[in-house]
Design a protein around this nucleic acid. Structure first.
Length: 430
DNA sequence: GTACTAATAT
DNA sequence: TATATTAGTA
C-alpha cells in the first residue's frame, strides 16, 4: 500500500480529503490528474489526495483512520476485493460518500461512477464532473455539522474558501455563520500575491488558495438577460443598464463584469446568427435569439413570479440545471434536487437554489427510490463532452453496469447523458 | 474616477 | 469553450 500525500498539497486549498483506490497505478495517476484539473477549474475543492492500490488496504486505512477521509473514489475491479463489496462495507460502517469507477484496457481509462451513500442509495453512472456534486454534498454536510454542533473535534476542519463563498454568498447566511465576506480589495490583493511569486514564503492565510467561483449562465438566467437586453433596445443595452434591469428581476448576484462578459459573447453570437440569417434567410435560427417577446413598455416588465418558488426571489440562480451544454449530468442534478428543496431551506434559508454549477442542496435523509433512479432510458448514451485533453478522454459504455450491478442485485441505471450539441445559444456548430 | 468593449487570459 | 480579466479609450 502506498499512501502518498500529494506533493502539491500546498497548492490545494485546505479542505477535504479524498481517498482514491485502484490497483492500477496508471489509473491512479490519471484520476489524480483529473481531480487536479477539476480543481483547477474550480469544480472541486479538495486538499489531500491519498492513493491506495489495494481495496483491502483502503478498507483497513478507512477503519483505522476513521475521520481521515471525506470521500472515497475507487475502482470496481480489484484483485482482492470487489468494488461493490467495498462500497457496501464503507457505506455500512462509515458514513462516507463513495464514487466508483471502472477501467478498460482496450479503450484506456474509462471512468464510470456509481454514487452511493452520498445520495441515499443513488446508483447511477456519473460523469467525472458529477463527483464535484458529491463533493459539495460533503462540504455542506461538514459545514452543517460545524454550525450545528461546534464540536471540538470538528472545528479544526479547514473549509476552503470556494465552498465557503458558495455557501455564504447570501449576506445573511454569511452573517449567521460568521464567515467573513470576501471583498474586491482582498481579491485583488490575493491575486497580486499569487502573481508575485518572488515574494516571501507562504503565509498561512487560507485565503491564498481561494478561487472565485464562476457564474454559470443557465438557460433561465440567459433568458432573463435577453429580456433585459431587449427591453433596453439598441444603444441602451450596455452592461450597467442590463445589470440594473436584471437586478429589478431579482437577479442580484451578478456583477457588471459578469454581464459585460456575457454580453460580449451574446453579441458575437447575434452577429454570427444574423450573418447566417441574411445569407440563407434562416429565420428560425435567428429567432432562437429572440425567444421571449419584448414587452413594449420598458418599465412594465412583470417579475417572473412563475419562476419563483413561494415568492422566493431570484437573488439566486433560477435553476440548478443548465439545459444546454452543461457540464453535469442532468439527471443527477435533477434527481438530487428532486424532493430536496424543502430540506435545503432548512440549511440555507435564504438560498434554496444553487448559485453555481457545483452548488447543490444537501441530500441528507432523502430517500431516492430505485424506481426513481430507473426512470432513465437505457437507449442512447451520448459520448460526453470532454473537459480534458484527449489523453484524459472519458468514455462511457452503457453495458458497463449490467454485469457489475447484477453482482449485488442492484438495478442498472443508464442513460441520461446530455447531448453536447446544443446550448442556450442554439445548436452549436461543428 | 466610471463605464464600455475588444482583446486576451484562464 | 465559457467566463474572467485586462487594457485602451471615451
Amino acid at each position: 500500500m502506498s499512501i502518498v500525500d500529494d506533493n502539491g498539497v500546498a497548492e490545494f486549498p485546505a479542505g477535504l480529503k479524498v481517498l482514491i483506490v485502484d490497483d492500477d497505478k496508471t489509473c491512479l495517476l490519471v484520476l489524480e490528474r483529473m481531480l487536479r484539473k477539476l480543481l483547477y477549474q474550480g469544480m472541486l475543492c479538495l486538499s489531500v489526495i491519498t492513493k491506495c492500490e489495494h481495496g483491502s488496504d483502503a478498507l483497513a486505512l478507512l477503519r483505522e483512520k476513521n475521520n481521515r477521509f471525506d470521500i472515497v473514489i475507487c475502482d470496481l475491479h480489484m484483485p482482492d476485493i470487489h468494488g461493490l463489496e467495498l462500497i457496501e462495507i464503507i457505506v455500512s460502517e462509515m458514513d462516507l460518500p463513495v464514487v466508483m469507477m471502472s477501467s478498460d484496457e482496450r479503450q484506456g481509462v474509462i471512468m464510470k461512477g456509481i454514487v452511493k451513500g452520498a445520495c441515499d442509495f443513488l446508483v447511477k453512472p456519473v460523469r467525472m464532473e458529477s463527483i464535484s456534486l458529491i463533493w459539495q454534498h460533503v462540504v455542506r454536510k461538514k459545514i452543517r455539522l460545524f454550525a450545528e454542533f461546534q464540536q471540538p473535534g470538528i472545528d479544526n476542519i479547514n473549509f476552503d474558501r470556494l465552498s465557503l463563498l458558495q455557501l455564504s454568498n447570501d449576506a445573511s447566511a454569511t452573517a449567521n455563520r460568521n464567515i467573513p465576506a470576501i471583498d474586491k480589495r482582498s481579491l485583488q490583493c490575493l491575486k497580486r500575491r499569487s502573481e508575485d511569486s518572488s515574494n516571501d514564503g507562504e503565509s498561512s492565510d487560507e485565503a491564498t488558495n481561494w478561487k472565485k467561483p464562476r457564474v454559470v449562465w443557465t438557460q433561465e438566467l440567459h433568458e432573463l438577460f435577453v429580456t433585459a437586453v431587449n427591453q433596453l433596445g439598441h444603444g441602451d443595452d450596455v452592461p450597467k443598464k442590463i445589470l440594473e434591469r436584471m437586478q429589478a428581476m431579482n437577479v442580484t448576484y451578478l456583477t457588471r463584469a459578469n454581464i459585460a462578459s456575457h454580453l460580449q459573447k451574446y453579441r458575437m453570437h447575434l452577429q454570427k446568427e444574423s450573418a447566417r440569417s441574411a445569407g440563407n434567410r434562416d429565420l428560425n435560427a435567428y429567432q432562437q435569439f429572440h425567444p421571449t417577446p419584448t414587452p413594449t413598455a420598458a418599465s412594465s416588465y412583470p417579475l417572473p413570479q412563475e419562476n419563483l418558488a413561494n415568492g422566493d426571489v431570484l437573488s439566486t440562480v433560477p435553476s440548478q440545471v443548465d439545459r444546454g451544454n452543461n457540464i453535469f449530468d442532468l439527471n443527477i442534478v435533477s434527481q438530487l434536487s428532486h424532493g430536496l428543496q424543502t430540506d435545503a431551506s432548512l440549511y440555507y434559508p435564504c438560498r434554496p437554489n444553487s448559485l453555481y454549477h457545483n452548488d447543490f442542496p444537501p441530500s441528507d435523509g432523502v430517500v431516492i427510490s430505485k424506481e426513481e433512479n430507473l426512470q432513465c432510458t437505457a437507449g442512447t448514451v451520448t459520448e460526453l463532452s470532454n473537459p480534458f485533453s484527449a489523453a484524459d478522454e472519458i468514455i462511457y459504455d452503457p453495458s458497463f453496469l449490467q454485469e457489475e450491478v447484477a453482482l449485488v442485485g442492484l438495478q442498472p441505471n443508464m442513460g441520461g447523458y446530455l447531448p453536447r450539441s446544443s446550448n442556450y445559444f442554439g445548436l452549436t456548430q461543428s
